[in-house]
Every structure is written in structure tokens, then in C-alpha cells.
Design a protein around this nucleic acid. Structure first.
Ligand SMILES: [Zn+2]
Ligand SMILES: [Zn+2]
Ligand SMILES: [Zn+2]
Ligand SMILES: [Zn+2]
Lengths: 186, 186
DNA sequence: GCGTTGTTGATATGATATAACGCATGGATC
DNA sequence: GATCCATGCGTTATATCATATCAACAACGC
């Protein structure tokens, strides 16, 4: 299947990763929203997730791994109950805590992100790489892309520092139009 | 009464406003978290709100105005149901839509902000001034401050633009420690 | 084996948010 | 004045998001 990838990875010190260079998400930033076979990306992320979790001493149990797979398959921000429906249909528990716990675990491990504007979760497409992404949410087609935001964080830290405020975690989310919907509107 | 003001206003082209210069929120950024008599700020904001709404053709009805007053009085981020309790106690409707509609109106008019991380709303302390603030949320004492974020938005716009994404609205929220709690922790 | 820890599943509840309907008001139009 | 229409309000009901608590069970170290 062909998807539009919600991944945006820049080649560079902060975002580089080590898998095959034919990964569409590892090309130029301008290619982030372009259509490509997402199966490769998903498979790559899963493999890296296995390694990262083992390395941290945590356990990527069946439910947790399945939730990550679902997020990768669906390839969009999903509500906890959306995930739960999928789990229930596959014989896992169908109670909210099952989904919330798995999602919380994935977020803690850096394998997924929480999109507060949507009350939803999305798989991180470059786990293990230090990053604090900004999320770009298209109001027309609902695609969610992760954008490198080192400069944004830096500006935020500076603004907070002027007031004596110490930033520990931050949320940067933008609502607007993706390239495709932007063209369509014009 | 003495409050800590959740307002941070900088004297400068983007944030200046025209009322009396003894407003604590109009002093140096470093004074943003300091204690002061908030009644002056609240009164000033209400007066400006009246003017702004009239100017835009909208109507600041009793319920809407009362919600703004409540937000200003409480001087913190409030959940919709907190506001609703206050309204109900004063004889207004006690159903969720009453509060949500008024809050939505205030946000649309730029008289209040929605803080997604807290699922809450706070009065804007400098309505009418072009601004897209970042919110600084203390994880210890829950104070919420509005910080000027022009540089942050600029960086975000630039990051999005590199991907062809057009930002229309954005959410920038930081969780951390306010100056007081930071000192206390040290 | 056996206690300890962590994971899962179930029940129940709490918290946040919106859909849909009908009525009242107030201004524009006839 | 009567009619129409747009707007706001109140209500019922429902949808969506999230957590507290307990019981069963599995993995692990001893
Ligand atoms: Zn990839
Ligand atoms: Zn789009
Ligand atoms: Zn004040
Ligand atoms: Zn504090």
C-alpha cells in the first residue's frame, strides 16, 4: 500500500539514523509529505523499537508491540479508543486501561507521541534519536507530521529564561494546511 | 487582595498597550511572576474587552461577560466545569454547553486562551494586542503565565515552511518550574 | 518452591466535550 | 403591527477521554 508518510526526518547530526538510505523519510525535508510505500518505514521503526526497549530494560510485551504496530499501520494520530477497538477485535482486552497503559508505555519509551490538540497518539517515526518535534496537523486531511524543532525549542527556552521560568517539557503543535491541501485550496 | 499575576506583557512594539503605566503587568518581564494587586489588571482588561467586542460587531452578553469576569477573578486556568459551577451558583444555566459556548466565544474574540495541556481556559490579560503567546505552566504551583512568543512562532513558521506546510494556528505550551518554585527546589 | 514485581483484564467511575432541539429576544422587512 | 430571520440561551442526552481499584496471572531472582 501507498501512504503519505507522517515522518519528517532531516539528514543531519540531530536526526540522522543508521538504516538503509533508501528510506523515503530520510530524504530531503521537502519529501516529507510525498507519497511512498510506508511499509518499509514501519518495519524499520519496529525493529529499532525492539532494540531500544531491550536496551532500556523494559519489555515490549505483545499488547504494547501490537499497539505500536497499529499506530504504524494506521499512520495517523489515533485516539485511545480507536486503538482499543482494534485491540478488542483481535482478542485483547477491550477496557480503556489496556489501551491507555500501552500508549503511556510507548510515550515513556519515546516510541510514540501524544498530540494534545487532538487528544490522540501517533507512533514516533524516528525513535531513539534525540528529538523534541513540532507536530504539523493538517486541518483538512488530518495528516500529522513530525517536524524538527530544535530552533523552536531554543527560542522557547530563551523566552522562558527571560522570566526566570525553567522549561522541562514542552508542546509545540501547529494547525494548518499540508502541501497537498494547500495546493488544492489555491 | 494580592495575587500573583499570570500576565506577562513586555513593553515593546508587539505588546505595548495604552493604559496607565502603573500596571504591574506592564513592567519588566522579570516582574511577571511577582505579587501585586490584580484588581487593576482585571478592571483594565474588562474595559478593553467591552470596546473590542463592540468594535468587532459581536455581543458581550451577560453570560459571556460574567465568564470573563470569573476567569479574571480566579486568575488561573479553569476547567469548563469549574466555570460552570460558578455560573450555576449565580443563577445561570448549569449545563456544560452554557460554559463551553461562552468560553469558545471568548477564545474566538481573543479574550481568553485555551490551555490544552490542562484542558482549561484562562483570561487573556492583553486582549486586542496582536500576540500569539506561549504558556508557561508551573508543575509545582500550577500558575500559568503568558509569555511573548514572537520568536518562537517565527521559528515554527520557518520549520513548517521548509516542508511546505502552512501554519494557521499553533499551540506552544511549556511545563516546568516558575521562579519561586525553582528557588524553593534549589 | 516462594516471595517480589510487573502486566493484564474487569468493573466502575470521573472528567471533558459536543449534538440536537426548542424557545426567547431583538432587529429588519413588509 | 405582523412577519421573518438571525442569534443566543437553556435543556436533554450522548459522546469522548481518562483514571482508580482490585483480582488473576506470569516472569524473575532467590
Ligand atoms: Zn522511514
Ligand atoms: Zn492535508
Ligand atoms: Zn495582574
Ligand atoms: Zn511554581
Amino acid at each position: 500500500m501507498i501512504y503519505v508518510c507522517n515522518t519528517i526526518t532531516r539528514q543531519g547530526a540531530d536526526m540522522a539514523h543508521d538504516h538503509a538510505s533508501d528510506c523515503p523519510s530520510c530524504q530531503e525535508p521537502a519529501a516529507a509529505f510525498s507519497r511512498h510505500d510506508h511499509a518499509h518505514c514501519a518495519q524499520d521503526v519496529l525493529e529499532r523499537a525492539d532494540g531500544l526497549v531491550a536496551q532500556s530494560g523494559a519489555r515490549l510485551t505483545p499488547v504494547r508491540r501490537r499497539v505500536l504496530e497499529i499506530l504504524l499501520e494506521e499512520h495517523r494520530a489515533m485516539g485511545a479508543y480507536d486503538v482499543l477497538k482494534r485491540l478488542a477485535a483481535e482478542g485483547y482486552g477491550n477496557q480503556p486501561p489496556v489501551a491507555y497503559r500501552a500508549l503511556e508505555f510507548l510515550v515513556e519509551q519515546g516510541l510514540a507521541h501524544r498530540i494534545r490538540r487532538l487528544n490522540a497518539f501517533a507512533a514516533c517515526m524516528h525513535p531513539g534519536e534525540a528529538h523534541a518535534p513540532a507536530f504539523l496537523i493538517c486541518r483538512n486531511c488530518n495528516i500529522v507530521a513530525e517536524a524538527p524543532a530544535a530552533a523552536v525549542r531554543k527560542a522557547l527556552d530563551a523566552a522562558a529564561d527571560m522570566l526566570g521560568f525553567l522549561v522541562e517539557r514542552s508542546t509545540v503543535e501547529a494547525l494548518g494546511l499540508c502541501p497537498a491541501c494547500r495546493d488544492q485550496a489555491a
